[in-house]
C-alpha cells in the first residue's frame, strides 16, 4: 500500500486525546492509518459516486447501517474491522443488493495501540476488496480512557438491487424450504472462548465472511428465492422467528439436519448453551420454493462460503408457535426467541 512507501509522521505508539483534537496529530492519524489504506488513489472525502447500475431502469438503491462492538477486538478468524465490513456487506447482500460503497466511522478509546488500529484497518481493506466494495468516506473520534472498549466501528453501506429482484420475508410461502450456507454458531462460540474468562481453548474460528458472491450464486441458480437473512445476534433461532412472523408462516426445523461442528456442540454441552442462539457472522438462512431447493443447495456447495450448506427446515401454515424443531430423538419442541443473553450455567 502507498502508506508503506511514505515516511511515517506518526510518532506515538498509542492513541491520545490529541489524535481527536482537530490538529496536526489528528490529520496524521487519519491520513496514515485510514485514508491512505482505504483510498490509495487519493480520492477526496465527501464522496461523489457514480455507478452504471444506478442508471438502469427498475434498479433500486439499498442503504443500511450497523455498529460493531466486540470483545476481544481480535479473535480467531477475524477482528472488529473484518466484522464491520462483512456485517454491512451482508445486510445489503441478503436483501438482494450488490454492495458498492461503505462508510466507516471509528470511536477510538484513548490508549488504543496504533499498531492494533493499523491491523484492523488493513483487515477492513482486505475484506472490502474481497467483497467488491469500496470504503469511500469515514470519520474518527477519540474518547477518554474508560469511555469506550478500545474501538467501536459504525459502517453504512450502499448497494444496488437490480431490476426484477424482490426479496423479503413477507414473500415466504407454506411449503418453502429453509437452507443455511454453513455451520452454525462458530462466531458466538469463538468469541466466548476468546474472551478467556471461561478458560476454554478450542480450534474454532469465527465464520466471519462476506456473502456477496454466495448470494449472487444462489440467485442465479434459484431465481425464485423468497428471502434471505444473515443469522447474526440471537442466532438461527431468533432470525427464523423474525422471518416466520413477518411471513405469517410457521417453520419446522429438522434437528438432525443442522450443520454443527463437534467443538461447538462440545462447548454448548460444557456451558449449557443452545447453539441455535449463538451468533453467526457469515451464515445466512434462505427460503426458496421447493422446486428450486436442490439448485440453491448445489450452487452454495460449489463455493467455499457454502461448502457446508444444508436444507434445515420447511415453512408450514400459520400457527400459534412460529418456530418448532423436530428433534433427532423424535419429539417436537418450541424454538423461541432468545431471552436476554445466553449465560453459562451449571444446572
Amino acid at each position: 500500500m502507498n502508506a508503506a512507501s511514505k515516511p511515517s509522521r506518526l510518532r506515538d505508539t498509542h492513541v491520545t486525546l490529541s489524535h481527536g483534537g482537530g490538529g496536526r496529530a489528528m490529520r496524521d492519524l487519519i491520513e496514515e492509518v485510514f485514508t491512505d489504506v482505504f483510498r490509495p488513489e487519493g480520492d477526496e472525502d465527501q464522496a461523489r459516486l457514480t455507478d452504471a447500475a444506478l442508471a438502469t431502469p427498475g434498479a433500486r438503491l439499498a442503504f443500511t447501517t450497523d455498529s460493531f462492538v466486540v470483545t476481544p477486538l481480535e479473535f480467531p478468524g477475524g477482528d472488529i474491522g473484518k466484522l464491520a465490513v462483512c456485517g454491512t456487506v451482508n445486510d445489503l447482500a441478503v436483501g438482494g443488493a450488490r454492495p458498492l460503497w461503505l462508510s466507516a466511522a471509528f470511536i477510538i478509546e484513548e490508549g488504543t495501540e496504533i499498531a492494533l488500529l493499523r491491523r484492523i484497518v488493513a483487515s477492513m481493506a482486505r475484506e472490502a476488496e474481497a467483497a467488491g466494495v469500496r470504503i469511500v468516506t469515514g470519520d474518527t473520534k477519540v474518547v477518554g480512557r474508560g469511555s469506550g472498549d478500545g474501538v467501536f466501528i459504525t459502517t453504512s453501506g450502499v448497494g444496488v438491487i437490480p431490476a426484477g429482484r424482490d426479496l423479503g420475508a413477507a414473500r415466504i410461502r407454506e411449503g418453502d424450504v429453509a437452507l443455511v450456507n454453513g455451520v452454525l454458531g462458530d462466531h458466538g462460540a469463538t468469541i466466548l472462548a476468546a474472551r478467556g474468562d471461561l478458560a476454554l481453548s478450542t480450534p474454532l474460528e469465527s465464520d466471519c465472511q462476506s456473502l456477496t458472491h454466495l448470494m449472487e450464486a444462489v440467485l442465479a441458480a434459484a431465481p425464485g428465492t423468497r428471502a434471505a437473512r444473515d443469522a447474526t445476534r440471537g442466532g438461527l433461532a431468533s432470525t427464523l422467528n423474525e422471518m416466520a412472523e413477518a411471513a405469517g408462516v410457521t417453520v419446522e426445523l429438522d434437528e438432525a439436519a443442522l450443520p454443527l461442528r463437534t467443538e461447538v456442540k462440545g462447548l454448548c454441552e460444557i456451558l449449557g448453551l443452545d447453539p441455535l442462539y449463538l451468533a453467526n457472522e457469515g451464515t445466512l438462512v434462505l427460503f426458496v420454493p421447493e422446486a428450486e431447493a436442490e439448485a440453491a443447495l448445489a450452487a452454495m456447495r460449489a463455493i467455499p462460503a457454502g461448502r457446508d450448506a444444508a436444507i434445515v427446515g420447511r415453512a408450514g401454515p400459520r400457527g400459534a408457535v412460529p418456530v418448532t424443531m423436530r428433534t433427532a430423538f423424535g419429539g417436537q419442541r418450541i424454538v423461541d426467541m432468545l431471552v436476554g443473553e445466553q449465560l453459562p450455567r451449571i444446572c
Binding site: A320, V321, T324, Q332, R333, I334, D336, R345, C347
Partner: peptide, 17 residues
C-alpha cells in the same frame, strides 16, 4: 433457571404446544 419447571414448560412448549 433452565432447570426451573416453569422455564422448561415455556421454553420447550409443554404448555403452548
Amino acid at each position: 433457571s433452565s432447570e426451573g419447571a416453569c422455564a422448561a414448560y415455556w421454553t420447550y412448549g409443554g404448555a403452548r404446544v
